[in-house]
Nucleic acid binder design. Structure first.
Length: 377
RNA sequence: GACGAAGUAGCACAAUGGUAGUGCACAAGAUUGUGGAUCUUGUGGUUGCGGGUUCGAGCCCCGUCUUCGUCC
């Protein structure tokens, strides 16, 4: 494998901040904008790698925190990394574990050195530092690694937000020192923090960009704040984000979020939402979200979405899928997951095409008009 | 046939003589860098039937029907 990692732009929209490009990696190309399915613990839950490929995924996520606890770096090293262990040969991105500092509140200690976790599996204590996160992410072996950051909760006062931002910058420098440009063939992305304070965000962009990374992510959004506030912060930030780097909005989003992000210049998205709600029977359609548990589908011969190319939509009725969920059959979770992942990826492909063909705004308005208007269903 | 026990929401069960509840099921929501079936809310009762006692009965008394058990 050659250690390549480049980002190039095919087209920048004149209608909005959106752009279409491609990331070249040693394991293949990632067209952008891209939606990345999340495979936290070495699997996109319920789906085989072949299914994830068929859904059209060009890259998936793995998670440092979870993989460090289980199977651990010893096992990962034995198998020569996660790609080989899970039989996924396309690109991969790993989160740094920083988010779990925020989302798993059972951490005992956080200081400038790092974070002490109590494992959610057996309570054992683990130290995670920027250097340790880099070491673990090298064992996993993803094409894209993320810096170890501190994501502060919402709401947070300005002092708390600044402290988390300062610490994230300091940790980002340590990550870059520990993991120089394409060490081990792996790229490293910085993460912008600053909570809902635009001045902090802008300072974070500047100081993180100066460190020098292969991509820049927006962290700390979609953590419970109102959607308009998230978009307001993005509006303020995006014009100041470097144009020559891929821009990654972490942990977002929903179908509508893809439009909101792309038109503001985001190139990469990841989110557990599509696969999580799928396991609870909620699926996307071009006319909005529906629950496959609803009684009204009992006698329905229709597929989830007649325009969808996934296996579930080509073969199964809503009536059958409802039965599977009511009977708690695993196939229901699998088919809903496959559909939602396929839906997000196809939607992003269409968004990319609409950008290139200079009709993004029209496509956005047409899609959201139907998707968000649930009254007509 | 005799004796005993039990009949309460679709199901399984609670409820000193004082506003009939819980779980499951059913129904509708929620879920955003995943702690793998979670959380929230809601619908649903002539307490087998008929009398009686009581200010008041799911509960006490009588009758009756049904089910289960034991014995003949």
């Amino acid at each position: 494998m050659t250690d390549k990692f480049t980002f190039s732009l095919d087209y920048s929209s004149e209608e909005c901040w959106g752009r279409a490009g491609r990331i070249q990696t040693r394991r293949g190309e990632i067209p952008t904008p891209v939606f990345m399915p999340v495979g936290t613990a070495g699997t996109v839950k319920t789906l085989s790698p072949e299914e994830v490929r068929t859904a059209g995924a060009s890259i998936i996520l793995g998670n440092t925190y979870h993989l460090m606890l289980r199977p651990g770096t010893g096992v990962l090293d034995h198998f020569g990394g996660l790609h080989r262990m899970m039989a996924w040969d396309r690109p991969m991105l790993t989160d740094s574990g920083g988010f779990q500092v925020f989302s798993l509140k059972k951490l005992n200690k956080i200081n400038d050195e790092g974070v002490e976790f109590a494992s959610h599996i057996d309570g054992a204590r683990y130290w995670l530092t920027p250097e340790e996160s880099m070491r673990i992410q090298r064992s996993i072996g993803a094409e894209i690694m993320m810096v170890f950051d501190e994501c502060c909760p919402y709401p947070a006062d300005e002092k708390t937000a600044r402290a988390a931002m300062e610490r994230s910058v300091a940790w980002a420098k340590r990550c870059r020192v520990d993991h120089p440009h394409l060490r081990n063939g792996q790229a490293l992305f910085g993460i912008v923090q600053g909570s809902m304070y635009l001045p902090l965000r802008l300072e974070s962009i500047k100081r993180t960009e100066e460190i020098g990374f292969e991509g820049l992510a927006v962290g700390g959004l979609s953590v419970g704040e109102p959607k308009p506030l998230m978009l307001e912060i993005l509006d303020g930030m995006m014009p100041h984000m470097p144009k020559n780097l891929p821009r990654y909005l972490m942990g977002v989003g929903t179908p509508e979020d893809l439009f909101y992000g792309v038109e503001r210049g985001i190139d990469m998205f990841d989110c557990v939402h599509p696969t999580r709600i799928a396991r609870h029977a909620t699926v996307f359609t071009t006319e909005g979200r529906i629950s496959m548990m609803n009684a009204r589908w009992q006698l329905s011969d229709a597929p989830i979405d007649a325009n969808c190319s996934c296996y579930a939509c080509r073969n199964f009725s809503r009536g059958y899928l409802r039965h599977l969920f009511k009977a708690k059959e695993i196939l229901g979770l699998r088919m809903a997951s496959l559909h939602n992942v396929t839906f997000m990826i196809n939607l992003m492909n269409n968004i990319r095409q609409s950008l290139i063909e200079k009709r993004f705004i029209a496509f956005r308005d047409q899609f959201l008009g139907r998707y968000l208007d649930k009254e007509n269903k």
